[in-house]
Every structure is written in structure tokens, then in C-alpha cells.
Design a protein around this nucleic acid. Sequence first.
RNA 1: GCGGAAGUGGCGGAAUGGCAGACGCACCAGCUUGAGGGGCUGGCGGGGGCAACCCCGUGGAGGUUCGAGUCCUCUCUUCCGCACCA
Length: 850
Amino acid sequence: MTDYKPQQLDAKWQNRWTASGAFEVDIDPTRPKFYCLEMFAYPSGHAHVGHVRNYIIGDVMARMKRMRGFNVLHPFGWDAFGLPAENAAIKTGTHPEKSTLDNIAHMKGQLQRLGISYAWGREIATCLPEYYHFNQWIFLKMFERGLAYRRRSTVNWCPSCQTVLANEQVIDGACWRCGSVVVQRDLEQWFLRITQYADELLAGLETLTQWPDKVVVMQRNWIGRSEGARVKFPVVGVREAPGTPGDEIEVFTTRIDTIYGANFILLAPEHPMVDRFVAESPDPAALRAQAATFRALDREARLTGTIDKEGFDTGRTAINPFSGQDIPIWVANFVLADYGTGAIMAVPAHDQRDFDFARKYALPITVVVQAGETTPDPATMSEASVAYGRLVHSGEYSGEAAPAVMARMIADAEERGTGVGEVQYRLKDWGISRQRYWGTPIPIVYCETDGVVPVPLEDLPVRLPMVAAFTGRGDSPLAQVPEFVNVSCPRCGGPARRETDTMDTFVDSSWYFLRFCDPTNGTLPFDPVAAAYWMPVDFYSGGVEHAILHLLYSRFFTRVLRDVGLVRFDEPFTRLLTQGMVLKDGAVMSKSKGNVVDPDTMLAKYGADALRLYVMFVAPPEKEVEWSDAGLEGSFRFLLRAWRIADHWGPVVRQAGNSGTAGFADLTEPERALRRKTHETIKRVTADIEERVHLNTAVSSLMELVNELYAFSESTPHGIPARGDAPAGRIDRPEIVAVAREAVEALVVLISPFAPHTAEELWESLGHTGGLAAAPWPAFDPDVAKAAEVVVPVQINGKVRGRFSARADASEDDLRAAALADATVQQHIGGKTVVKVLVAKGPLVSVVVK
RNA sequence: GCGGAAGUGGCGGAAUGGCAGACGCACCAGCUUGAGGGGCUGGCGGGGGCAACCCCGUGGAGGUUCGAGUCCUCUCUUCCGCACCA
């Protein structure tokens, strides 16, 4: 008996794979391709088992697909720019490049020790000029097309990270990275015009049939399309300050059909007209103070979730363009400045928020939609009334169906010039400027005469200088490097100054999957031919935390690159799997919590395969799991058990020569049972990996096969491993050897995606040369899986009351007769009348009695 | 509030509308062993019975069906995402 020494096997096979370049690939038009990708890693220093789970999921898929004959691209890389490295530099003085490259080296070692089958020859790191060169290239292409633009705007500023955050990076008013309260600042920023693709990004979601619903829905909500109308309400001068003729307030509404019930206008505190109305009011100081309070409160509100609806009267009125009514203009703290027009028409009768506001300030309420026979009385209403039904008090539109009449009302508004149909999005353009060092320099120069000038493509990359001082101050560290800042204008040669902000690191990850297709290209981000072969990614897995940010940006970049002419598809990721996290003591693993499980510790104890197998077996890949040392031990024991049985049969199988179909002619029932189990396992493992990605059930069916092998072994003279090293008897039935060989070989191949080192060693010991790479994935034979005789359950009124044995090819009539003849069944039927007897596939007989 | 996912043994989890609890963990027993935290075999939802078997059981209540963990309606709970989005 050969001892199972996993650590030695790990090293042996990892070295062989590396030496032979086993996982390196090239374009091969003769074979179907399969691009398997896990979200690349931020090189934080150490990968814990939570990270590693994702890589193992991808590796199982990649290894399996390889054996199924696909040309598999399975690359890995590093999302290597980012704040932690820079923050560490501020603290310790270590240059981010050094700490990042050191971290990469360590983590790469960790992944290699796990035997993940990456094409390391294609490894990329986004912090290297060879990569970020093309961040700049893509940026310039966007600039050319008006998709990258600069504007002054109020931005989300994290006072702790000292940088700007995208809307997507603000979670409940706090920084996504450090949790600090985000404040607003006015800065000149670069934006990417993702909104131009809003409709396309939304429509494309329909084609993502192999994405989790949850992610599709999250993206749909994030894009937040709503159809409605922009309507003009002329401002009239009343009381102290007459309005200037032509002044009007535009509102956005999705329910123009309720406009006769628009009893007042509400402005966001930041609305541009607020300051004017305040200034012109009889008591400007008081109103100004109120407006200021609201503006501050509005930010707070994002943190707490809800605020009391408050507002104040501007003292002005506007004309409802449909009813002609003069309605008051108020300022309200719950109206958002950055959505729609920053102003709304309030319809208190049919909108709860407006209703609450009207009640609080005793503003009028007009019901304009009624669902039933009677019109609700505003005086007695306790909440807003439903807005679906028939219009009332709506002039010429009274009696029409709401909201169906909207189209007509929008058309009428357009004709009269008082409104226009409009679509609004929640999605905003993507601000990418960061006032930090460790990122891609934005390739722009500001010239005194030529203004904003893009760096010519041939001058790329704009290299990040190796500045020494990291201050952590709010201005970009690059601004303090005169050699970097001071340049001559590429257009006129005159004095100019470089942009000193760097790009959001999400730019880096928005196209890295394309770079893997052609990672060393020096003139283009990638060769379009290579991308046409490999892309789109067939299987992409990663954390659900990237459901919006990374995945939406990647979809956006892919479309831009399509329009630039580099790719010819819309969607980069065909199938998406969002893997669940690994918890320890009920919490997400993190260094600060001190609950990190280090894969290397587990490797030292059990080897890579036990860890791989455990992580795949413990739960379906999408589910969160709680780490368990006992569970890992269980998987190790299973590997031992599999090793022993394969090792036990090894000499016998090897002696019998290569696999073939000979020897399956005349089998006994135990032999037949093992064959059946073998083929059931082939079928199940194949489908569980390839189709369902239920890796846990794939492992459990392998366990069943091992159990069956033990049971089978016990029934043969050869015995089972525990009963002694030497076979107990001579095997004189070639059928025994044939079915055992088939089972053992299938086991070794099927388990290899999960436990590649163990499988390679066993495969070799079974007399095969060339490694598992040359081994074909076993084929399922449906005829073998069929049993000659089956046990047929009999249900009486839905409950199983008996069972009998029948030939598998028995006719339905025979089954019915046999079922009724069964003694137990007869007993249950008793004196009742048999109404119906039906045979379902299985087979199963169902008897209905009364 | 809107949207999504999910509720099954002590635990992780299995079940194209067809024998609920596969597989594993934990636990129990027997065997093996010098010994064991190793190995092998068996047991393991609840209740009843000497037994064959019987009754109950997939958060709850209805329904569809010969048959429901699975489909439909309502409801409760948990997790996740979005949220004064006009």
C-alpha cells in the first residue's frame, strides 16, 4: 500500500505543470474555445480561504473544460493600483510599487501552491506602464468621442481617504472603503459619459440570461430609467416681487395625467431659483437661513435614511399649464436637486409624500383620480389615494383612464409648447478623477493658449513618476513633482501643465479581461483578432459586491471599445456566477477581525486537494458558508479513502492493460451495479459542473462512487484495503477487473478537477503516461446505467404503500397488474373501489381508490 | 416602501411534480488495532409497535393534482439590494 503524502504530490505535480507549461494556450481555430475567468485580485498581501474559494470554483470549471476538449483560457492578474498601498506608503514610507509587487509575489505563490491551473504566461498587473498605457489610450479614445469630459461639479469627497468617490462608491452616505462620512466639494473633474449608453446597458440586460436575476435586477434599478414628461410652470409675480416675464419652473413628472391635482410646486433647496426667490422675499435673512439648514439636512438625511418633511413658502406662485390655476411655490427638504429638474409638481391627493407635506402645512388637496364610484373627500382622507382609475376634475380629460391618458396629455403639452416627453435616469456620469498618487495618470495637458490638450497617442504612456513623498494631503501628490507637472504643450510647444489627478481604479478593471487575450501588445490594448477568438468570457465568477460597479463599467467599456472598432460584441460576460463568502465565527474574514483562515496553514496539514475539495463540497458556490476545520478533515478522510481504494485496485487494473469495452459481456448483479454507479456518476458529475455549477453535489456523487467501490470490493476475492494489503484471493473473473478498472479510472478522472494532484498521481500509478491532460473525460453510456430489474413503488391515494420488483422493460399493463397483485397493496385497498391505476415514469404505479 | 433570494434532521446540505432527508459533519454501537483523534461495518427526523408495519413530518393557512419540499393564492420570518427617484 502506498502512503498518501499530499504535500509531496502537490510539489511534484505543480513543478511538472509549470515545467511543461501545461496551462498556457494559444489561438486554435480547430477547437472550441472556453474563456474561464475569476475576478482578478487586489494584492492586499495575503489571500484567505474566502478569496481562494472563487479561484477553486473557476479552476474546477477550467480543468473540466480542458478535459472536455476545449481550448481553455484561464488567466490571472492583479488589480494593483489603489489606496491601501498608498496609505501604507504614507504610514511606513515603503513605495507603493514595492509593497504591491511584493504582495503580488506572495499571493501568486499561494495560488500556485493550491494548484490553480492559470496560464501564468498571461499574468498582468494594472500598476505597470505596459498596462496603464492602455487605460490612457482608451481614455483618449473616449475624449475624442466626447465620452470623457471635464466639468466643475459637486463631488463626493471622503475626508479620510482624501479623495473623490463615484456615486457608486458612496454607501449610505459613507465611503465604501473606509466608512467615513462623505462630504460634498466643488472640484474640476473628469467624467466618463456612461449615461450615453444608459438605454443600451438597460436593454442589454435582457440578453444576460446566464446571469443571476439578482444582479440583473440590481443593475436595472441602478440605471433607474423612468419615462415621463418635463413640464413648464410659468412663474407669476405676486406679493412683493413681480416675476420677470418668461421665467418658468420646469418639473419632471412620471404622472402628467395627475397634473390637474398639482396643488403646489416644490423646489429642492439647491434649486437655482431658490436663492432669487429668497433674495426677493420680504425677509431674506430668515428664508436664507432655512434654505441653508435644508441643504445641510439633506446630506444628513442620506445617513439616517429618513427625515421629517419640511419646507417653507417662497411667497411666489406659478401657473399650472393645464388647469390654469395659480399655485404656490415652496421649497422642500425631500426634493432631490440632482434628479430630474430639481423641482416637482406636488400632487398631494395621490402621492404620499406630497400628501404628508400638504397636511403639515395646510396646503390644498385636489383629488383627480378615482378608482371606485365615489370621489374620495380630501378633508377626510388619512393617506394619499390610489392613482389608478378614472380622471376627475381634470378639465377636458375628465373621465379618461389614468394613467393610460398620459400619452395624449404629453402630446398636447408638446403641441402647446408647455412640456415635452422625457426619460430620466438615476444613473449619473462616472467621475473618475482621484487626487491620489497610486493610479493611472490622466493623459491631459493644460496649455495657456490651447486649453485642454490630450497627450498624443504616440507619447503614451504618461508614466507615473517615482515620487518620494506621500503626504496624504488633499491635493494630488503628483502636483508636487515639478518634472511631472511642467511640460510643453503637445500642440503649440508653449508652457503647459499636466493633469495631476489619477484615474479611479475601476477604470483598470473595466477592460482587463480583454487584455488577457493579448497581454503583451505594445501598440493596442489588445489585438482585435485575439479578442474575437477568446471573447466573450464564457464563465465569470466573483463576489456579488461587484454586481453594480465593476460589472456595469465593464459592460460600458465593452460597448465603447465596440464603437471604437476593437470588438464586435456587446456583452463581455456570458455566464456569471456570484460566489458566496466564507465566514469564520459568523463574520466575514478580515485581518482586523482576526478571523482569517490562511490557506497555507491548511496546505501544510492536509495538502491542496483536501482544501479544494472541502471548499467545493461544503455548499453550493453561490452560498455563504461557515468555515469548519472538522469539515476539512472530513474531506481529507475522503481523499484518503479514495486513494486507498484506487491504490488497492491499481496493480490489478494496470495488469489488465488499457481501458476498453472488453469484459462487460456477462456481468453478475454486483458487477452490473458498479458499472451502473460508474455511469450515473459520470453523468451527474459532468452535468453538475458544466451545466448547473453545483460543485457540492458533484463531489457527493464522487463520494457515492467510492462507497460503491468499497461495497463492490468486499464482494470480490480481492477484498477491501482495510482487510490487508495482499489480495485475499485470486481474481479469475476478467469481468471483475473490467468493471473495477472502469470505475477506478472514471473516479480518478472525474475527481481531477477538484483534486488534481492526487488524481495525477493515481492516474500515473494506473499505468497512464502523459498526465491527465491527455486523459479523455469519460463518456456516459445510458444503456449501461439502466438496471435489468427495478423496484417499483406503489402509491395508493398518493402514499407509498408497497413495492415490487419488475423487469425494467415491463409494459405498463404488466406493472398495473403486478401492483394490484401485491399483497400489501391489496390489504390497503381493502373493500374500496379502485377508480384509476396509472403508471408514471420511474416507474411508479399510482392507484386511486374510493 | 419597492425589488430579489431563501425557510427541509443536532449541523452543512440533497431531491426533471413521483419512495423527503442523497452525500458529509457530529453522535452511537460492533469489529480491527499494542494503542488511538486511524481503519472497516452498521445505526442515526419525531411518535407507536416484539415485529411486519402504522401515524406525523420540508415556517404557517388554503388551493391545483392520482401524487406537492417543488406549482398557485394568502401569510409569517430571515438575509440581501435599492430607497423621499417625483
